[in-house]
Amino acid sequence: MGKLRARVFIAGMVALATVGSAPAATASTEIADRWSSPGPFAVTVEALDVAHTVYRPSELGAQGLRHPAILWGNGTGASPEIYGGLLRHLASHGFVVAAANTPNAGSGKEMLAGATTLIAENTRPGSLYQGKIDTAHIGATGHSQGGGGAIAAGADPRVTTTVPIEPGPQGSATALRGPSFFLGGQFDTIVIPALLVIPRYRLADQVPAVYGELAKATHFTPAGDGGGFRGAITAWFRFWLFGDERARGEFFGSCGLCQDRSWSDVQRNVKALAV
C-alpha cells in the first residue's frame, strides 16, 4: 500500500472509530439472520500479554468446552479496538480472539505470537486458559495489511483456516495450509478485488478456497462491527473451527452465500466444491 493510500486509510479508520462502521449491504438470508446476531457468550476484553488484546467469553470452559482461537491483524495504522465490534462478536460465538496490538501486522509474526502465548497458557498451571483452548483449531484473519498478515500466518502449521479481509499483498496464497475464505468489497478502491484479491484466491488451489465479494462494500466497511462481512466470517469459523454443521451449507453444497443477493460475486475452487 502506498504512503498516500496508507494516510487515507488511517484517516478513514479514525473517523470510523468515532462514528461507527460504514454502511454495508443489508443481507436478508440465513447468513445474516443466524450469524450476524450476537452469540450466547458474555464477552470480556483484556490484555493477553504486552503485545496482544484478547476478546474472549467471560466464562471459559463452561461444561467442558474448549474454545478455538482466532488470531487478528489490524489494517495499517489501526488498533484492535477500531474493529472492536467484530472481535467482540466473534468472542460471543465462543472464540478466544488474540488481536495483535501492532498497526503493522503484515508479516504475520505478530499474529502468530498470539498463538504462541495462548498455547503456552493452555498448559501453564494456574492459568485462566489452562485446558480451555482448543489448540488444534486456530484461525487467522485480519483486514487490509492485517489480511495480508493472515495469509502469511496461514503458512504456519498451527493455523488451520484463514480469512483474509480485503488483504494487502503480504504472504503467499500458495503457502496456505488450510481452507481459506478471501473477502473483497465491491466498491473497494484501495484493495481492488479484480486486481488484488481474486488473483490470490485463484492461486490458493492447494486448499479449499472461497471468494466472497460484498456488494456496495468499501475498504472501510470491515471497521467497527464488520458490517455485512460479520455473519459470513462467523459462519466460516463456526464450521471450520467448531465443526458446526449448521454453517456448512452457507459455503458448501447448496451454498447459501452463493444465493445471497448481498454478495456481488461468490466463487469456489475445485477443492471447495468437493467439501
Score class of each variant (00 low, 15 high):
residue 272 A to P: 00
residue 259 Q to C: 09
residue 165 I to C: 04
residue 152 A to P: 12
residue 9 F to L: 15
residue 5 R to A: 15
residue 83 Y to H: 12
residue 159 V to F: 08
residue 147 G to K: 00
residue 186 Q to K: 11
residue 26 T to A: 15
residue 208 P to L: 02
residue 196 L to A: 14
residue 272 A to H: 04
residue 161 T to V: 12
residue 115 A to R: 05
residue 95 F to D: 04
residue 95 F to T: 06
residue 116 T to M: 06
residue 85 G to I: 02
residue 62 A to G: 12
residue 10 I to F: 11
residue 188 D to A: 03
residue 137 H to W: 02
residue 6 A to P: 10
residue 32 A to K: 12
residue 65 L to P: 11
residue 134 D to C: 02
residue 69 A to V: 06
residue 175 A to W: 05
residue 220 F to Y: 11
residue 29 T to V: 05
residue 216 K to P: 08
residue 168 G to C: 10
residue 226 G to L: 06
residue 263 W to V: 02
residue 202 R to D: 01
residue 217 A to E: 05
residue 192 I to N: 01
residue 113 A to S: 14
residue 215 A to M: 14
residue 78 A to K: 00
residue 228 G to C: 03
residue 210 V to M: 00
residue 179 P to G: 08
residue 41 F to P: 06
residue 243 G to R: 09
residue 201 Y to T: 01
residue 197 V to L: 11
residue 115 A to P: 07
residue 196 L to Y: 08
residue 159 V to I: 13
residue 28 S to D: 12
residue 243 G to Y: 01
residue 269 N to K: 00
residue 122 N to R: 04
residue 36 S to A: 13
residue 131 G to S: 02
residue 146 G to H: 04
residue 137 H to G: 01
residue 137 H to D: 05
residue 89 H to W: 04
residue 12 G to D: 10
residue 191 V to T: 10
residue 108 G to E: 06
residue 35 W to P: 11
residue 180 S to H: 01
residue 57 P to M: 04
residue 52 H to E: 07
residue 75 G to C: 05
residue 165 I to T: 02
residue 127 S to Y: 07
residue 241 L to F: 03
residue 264 S to A: 09
